[in-house]
Amino acid sequence: MHPAFLGLFTILVGVSVCVGYYYFSNQLLDKVLFPAKGPNAGRNINRREMIRPWLFLMPAIFALGLYLAYPVVKTLLLSLSERLPGGASQFVGFDNYTKLFADEKFWEALQNNMLWLLVVPAACTAFGLLIAQLTDRISWGSIAKSLIFMPMAISFVGAAVIWKLVYDARPIDQDQIGVLNALYLLFGGQEPQTWLTIPLANSFFLMLVLIWIQTGFAMVILSAALRGIPEETIEAAIVDGANPFQVFFKIKMPQIAGTIVVVWTTITIVVLKVFDIVFAMTNGQWQTQVLANYMYFQLFTAGDWGVGSASAMIIMLLVTPILVWNVYNARKEMR
């Protein structure tokens, strides 16, 4: 069977199983288990209203539990054990972490990740804020915004190809086809550079790709926040003689500080998970390794599940503060 038909078939089966489940489980509850008639009608109605939410929630809880909650626990266990030949595994305590911390590549990945964490969210937020502020004042602002937003739709892999062309290098005696080298030579560079092989600088060239993608996101959110600022506060400031820069930094910025934090943390999480860009452009060579790619390498190339899981736990550890913060805020908001 052609996989495309398999796909269509799956949609049909999946959708009907889902709908069938919800419909028949509700019917079962209403008509068979706790019918709203007979001597116990009142009690039955109460009971079924207690059970119904769980009918609605069950598939989601099952999927969330199996695909996200269980793996967290399982990965923790894997990171504390070692795979033995024949599929068995053995508890080894913190051996995997010791091995991980002894690996130079891990420290390189962690360092790079920290650099990414410093640069990318800051750059995206700054550019996003700048563009949001500028486009709000002009008539074709929405077109400009949608064009800058566009890279959001492009896959990391697609972006990797796009930027590899930008960074491309040809021998000196040929015409450069990468725009960066063409500019470099135009402004007095002596020789075309293979940008992605220069340590440290190459990390920044990779970050540029993510900044290019994520700025649109920051811009959209911040632009909405800027529009939400009450007109009066700005008018009052202008009447009091504030110049545009003062209006921006002293009046607008404090009012959107909460949104800036949201944008910053969201991009931070994207950065921690960044894999495709590095995998496609350098695969961690020339000192561009990052944690997610290091983990992939340990799991599937080196085949070391223990160390791989340990590095996954490191990523989890880095995400945890944001996780706690988000949950805290969500609960505060619900109250």
């Binding site: 399982k74 998970k273 599940w305 899981s309 996954a312 990523i315 989890m316 988000n326 949950v327 969500a330």
Partner: peptide, 25 residues
């Protein structure tokens, strides 16, 4: 129903769990 806000909190928490953790398990 009892436990609703706990479940919502769990969803918010799972929102940021890196899927890298899920690969091997």
């Amino acid at each position: 129903f009892p436990g609703r806000s706990l479940l919502i909190a769990a969803v918010v928490a799972l929102l940021v769990v890196p899927l890298q953790l899920a690969l091997i398990p």
